[in-house]
Computed example of a mutant assay.
Amino acid sequence: MNKGLLFSGPFFSFAYMKVAVTKFLPGIMWVFVIFILLIMPGSDIPANEWFEILFFDKWIHTGLFAILVFLWALPLNTQVNRNVFLTVIIILSVLYGVAMEYVQKHIAPTRSFDITDMIADTAGALTGAVVTTIFYKRDKK
């Protein structure tokens, strides 16, 4: 693979290896899956008292964003500065979760803004980073 310079500045610079865009297709598709699931009308989501007791909605958010980080980070596991890339992926995933809450508030019918969903999205992004790191270390052996 060819090495190139991704960013160079007065404080830091780091190199990267080119990664085929096709390796990011699962992550790209997952972004759309999350979008569709989070803008579905609330009436389309089954209501169950147990779901509310177990905070099922928060677990779904956590899982969606853990998978998002994992799918985006997986192609970068061989990169020179994978921790930098993983940090960027986490930040972008959290920002996507925040943006989706605003989409739910202003665009999606019968959906609302919920800060606890953003907390669950953040927890999911961090969980995805941990799983990715464990996967990388196991795969490296």
Rank of each mutant, 00 (worst) to 15 (best):
I39G: 03
P41F: 12
G42H: 06
G42Y: 12
S43V: 02
D44T: 09
I45D: 01
A47M: 03
E49I: 05
W50A: 00
W50S: 02
W50M: 03
I53W: 14
F55T: 12
F55W: 05
D57H: 00
D57L: 04
K58F: 00
K58S: 02
W59Q: 00
T62D: 01
T62A: 15
T62S: 06
L64A: 03
F65M: 12
F65H: 12
F65V: 04
I67E: 00
L68I: 01
V69C: 05
F70A: 04
F70Q: 14
L71M: 08
W72K: 09
L76F: 15
L76S: 12
N77V: 15
N77D: 09
N77R: 14
T78M: 08
T78V: 02
Q79F: 09
V80D: 15
V80N: 15
R82G: 08
F85E: 07
L86S: 02
V88H: 08
I91V: 15
I91E: 08
S93F: 13
L95E: 11
A99Q: 04
A99P: 09
E101C: 07
E101I: 08
V103T: 08
Q104P: 07
Q104E: 13
K105G: 03
H106Y: 15
H106P: 02
I107C: 02
I107D: 01
A108D: 12
P109I: 06
P109Q: 11
P109G: 04
T110I: 00
R111D: 05
R111H: 06
S112Q: 08
F113H: 13
F113N: 09
F113G: 08
D114M: 11
I115W: 15
D117M: 03
M118C: 09
M118P: 05
A120T: 03
A123E: 11
L126K: 03
L126G: 01
L126Q: 04
T127I: 03
G128L: 13
A129T: 08
A129R: 04
V130I: 13
V130E: 02
T132S: 15
I134F: 05
I134G: 00
F135R: 04
F135G: 01
F135Y: 15
K137A: 12
